[in-house]
Write a protein that binds this DNA or RNA. Structure first.
Length: 415
RNA sequence: GCCCCCAUCGACUAGCGGUCCAGGUCGCGGCCCUUUCAAGGCCGUAGCACGGGUUCGAAUCCCGUUGGGGGCACCA
């Protein structure tokens, strides 16, 4: 993986990185991280740390230390000088340009696209070294591939037109060519390049939105690849064992946020209860919520089946952690049932979901109310919302005192 | 403008010449379940871009058209 340190890690780059990682892990090879920082003017100070932090969170571990392209500046210059000496490159306004062949074709057998061919007459003489002495990306990149013994270059299709140029450089220095695989781009719902206006695009944003890295990996793996026509849910291990680069599609895929949400929900629900609570705690901590861990753990089990992203937790369970302000209109004139509920729960023992349910159903019966009519005002009174986790479990966790207070406060407004 | 790539339901895809009047998943619609919302179960909706070939036979192979995307920097 060879990101340039210009900002946060983009999800499209993550998809390409994932294919590299899956291929390397499947084949027992190495996955390398190279920071392509030859354009110092665009470099952002924090970017390298952000990129590594994001990769770690995603579980995309790389082999060996990460390298910086700029560290090979001197080596690149030396090669450029040799090429000039050999007549394969020439001085031009203080820069050094590579002399591309102007007849014939440059062809390579791309793993995902098959043979790709460019006429050499269409290849421009590439600037190898800028007039300020820094090598350019299209020179440094193939050189590093050679020096690092890169066997497979798996990158986005936006690099297709760079490939013939890079191949000619590698040939000129007499080194062996790597195998190339150009994977399709990831687009937004409009078919255009995935960007901010489509939704979350950086790893940091997906993390903040409460997606699980394993769900994100599963979803991304399916953008341009499928093991068969049936399987959609695959954990990391399954992805590694089943991944096959030759099955990667050549056509671009659109990023479907709705499907990601569904898949994240699947992963959330599959988590063991304690693990789900643990993930919630971590997410809450990362996002500035200082909520009681014990209460979060109790609340977790009430919402696990109901949310698709961790970020939905505060909206669903917030009533357990702070005061509520029910809309009087939502109480739906339920003064009677609220009073009845108050009475039914005031000295109920034990104060548990099952007994609470029995008591409230009994109260509803006596008022001749259908469950739906009776429980909705109580729900609004107690949780402050028309949508909530299971009412009886919620009341149990909330506790008698708070429940009764909210019931009374609401009864006063409803009347 | 030039170069390159791509083309199956709205989306992600399976399909690699007959087993496809095209299968799975998301979404969407309906029904069931139900204390709300979800989840779950069942049913349904919807597609091989178009035109020529090749072949006994094409979603699958070839050519063209159209459409979409990417690239044309002393950016990466």
């Amino acid at each position: 993986m060879a990101p340039s340190p210009t900002g946060l890690l983009h999800i499209g780059n993550v998809r390409t990185a994932l294919f590299n990682w899956l291929y390397a892990r499947h084949e027992g090879g190495e996955f390398r991280l190279r920071i392509e920082n030859t354009d110092t003017s665009r470099e952002v100070a924090e970017a390298v740390d952000h990129i590594q932090e994001s990769l770690r969170w995603l579980g995309l571990d790389w082999d060996g230390p990460h390298t910086f392209q700029l560290d090979r500046m001197d080596d690149c210059r030396r090669v450029a000088d040799e090429l000039v000496a050999q007549g394969k490159a020439y001085q031009d306004d203080g820069a050094i340009r590579f002399r591309m062949p102007d007849e014939g074709v440059t062809v390579w057998n791309d793993i995902v696209r098959g043979p790709v061919e460019f006429r050499n007459e269409n290849l421009a003489d590439l600037v190898l070294v800028r007039s300020d002495g820094r090598p350019t990306y299209n020179f440094a990149s193939p050189m590093e591939d050679v020096w690092d013994g890169i066997t497979h270059v798996i990158r986005g299709e936006d690099h297709i037109s760079n490939t013939p140029t890079q191949i000619n450089i590698i040939r000129a220095i007499g080194a062996e060519l790597p195998i190339y695989a150009h994977v399709p781009n990831v687009a937004g719902a409009d078919g255009k390049k995935l960007s901010k206006r489509h939704g979350a695009v950086t790893v940091a944003e997906f993390r903040k939105d409460g997606y699980l890295p394993e769900a994100l990996m599963n979803f991304l793996a399916l953008l341009g690849w499928a093991p068969d026509g049936e399987t959609t849910i695959m954990n990391r291990g399954e992805l590694v064992t089943r991944f096959d680069l030759t099955r990667v599609s050549a056509s671009p895929a659109q990023f479907d946020y709705a499907k990601l949400d569904w898949m994240n929900g699947v992963y959330l629900r599959e988590l063991p209860g304690e693990e789900f609570a643990h993930r919630l705690l971590i997410w809450l901590g990362e996002n500035g919520y200082d909520w009681d861990a014990e209460l979060v753990t109790q609340a977790a089990r009430l919402v696990q089946e109901k949310i698709a992203r961790l970020a939905e937790f505060p909206g669903f369970a917030g009533f357990l952690f702070g005061d509520v302000e029910p809309e009087p209109a939502d109480l739906d004139g339920g003064a009677q049932i609220l009073a009845a509920a108050d009475e039914a729960l005031a000295s109920l023992e034990p104060f548990e979901a099952a007994s609470i349910e029995a008591a409230l159903r009994d109260a509803a019966d006596r008022l001749g109310l259908k469950p739906r009519q009776a429980f909705q005002p109580i729900r609004v009174a107690v949780t402050g919302s028309k949508v909530s986790p299971g009412l009886f479990e919620s009341i149990e966790v909330l506790g008698r005192e708070t429940t009764l207070n909210r019931l009374r406060a609401a009864a006063a407004v409803a009347a």
